[in-house]
């Protein structure tokens, strides 16, 4: 069974005093949402899982194999970071052909997803990846990641700058995808559309969870340490809780988890 196992993962960057990941543990064998505010370490976690950054401590196992030992294995993992699709400075159409050739994917699948996401096909033959708008670039990278038919797909904020109709179409692809999907986002509205998924929360380099998304749809965020909490997390030196009941702010109404800090500030004042 496909699985990504993360054990005691710590990542530090030499230009940052604080570590980005402070001991992350997780077992991902389903479709999982990783929810956290901007700067919480979600993207760094994905980079570490892919083996694209130096791990200070801990390890990542993909299907039981250390990620450091994986080489030349198409179909194991794909990711939608634009930086991994910058192998050559060529037009997007050539880039799609190249990655399809290297990964054994079907380029027509990429085009089909891009058409659904509303990317004009003529643009692909005229522009390079970095010449596209941020939203178009994200859509192209997400389509390429999904069409590689990898056992594990990591999607970093795939809904950013997509309009609501296109978000809906992408959700359909994600729900139909046959494999392990890890999707990170700071937007909580998404939870309503992915009830069968697992959810993790990430704050300040620590991962909390998991819990079923379905069970979290009606929980509220309390800025206190609640004894009956579904999940407790450390944010800015305080314990916050996800609780059932009427107290606190409905998690799905937050829109963005960046608001947790605003709420914490308001509560402190």
């Amino acid at each position: 069974m496909p699985m990504i196992l993360v054990e005691g993962l710590k990542v530090s960057y030499k230009w940052r005093q604080e570590p980005v990941l402070r001991g992350v543990d997780g077992e991902f064998d389903n479709k999982s949402l990783i929810l956290g505010p901007n700067g919480s370490g979600k993207t760094t976690l994905f980079r570490a899982v892919c083996g694209l950054t130096n791990i200070t401590e801990g390890r990542v196992l993909i299907d039981g194999r250390n990620v450091e030992d994986v080489y030349a294995e198409p179909g194991i993992l794909s990711v939608n970071f634009p930086e991994v699709y910058s192998l050559l400075s060529v037009k997007v159409r050539d880039l799609i052909t190249l990655y399809a050739d290297l990964s054994g994917a079907d380029p027509s699948k990429t085009y089909a997803i891009l058409e659904e996401l509303g990317i004009p096909m003529e643009l692909l033959g005229k522009r390079k990846l970095h010449e596209l708008s941020a939203g178009q670039r994200k859509a192209v990278c997400t389509a390429m990641a999904l069409s590689m038919d990898a056992k594990h797909v990591l999607l970093d904020e795939p809904f950013e700058q997509l309009d609501p109709a296109r978000k809906g179409r992408l959700i359909k692809y994600l729900n139909e995808y046959d494999g392990v999907v890890l999707l990170n986002t700071h937007e909580t509205w998404l939870m309503k559309n992915l009830p069968e998924w697992d959810a993790y929360f990430m704050f300040e380099g620590r991962l909390y969870g998991s819990a079923s998304v379905k069970k979290l749809l009606n929980v509220r965020l309390s800025l206190r340490d609640e004894p009956e909490a579904v999940l407790k997390m450390e944010v800015a030196g305080k314990t916050i809780s996800l609780v059932r009941g009427r107290r606190g702010t409905l998690l799905t109404s937050l829109e963005s988890l960046d608001r947790v800090y605003e709420l914490a500030l308001e509560a402190g004042a």
Partner: peptide, 23 residues
């Protein structure tokens, strides 16, 4: 310069596509 700007892509393709580091 081209090599430097594509180093993350190179790392990715040598791990998760048929292009091994030597190839």
């Amino acid at each position: 310069e081209a090599f430097l700007h594509s180093s993350r892509s190179i790392r990715f393709v040598t791990k998760y596509t048929k292009l091994s580091p030597s190839r």
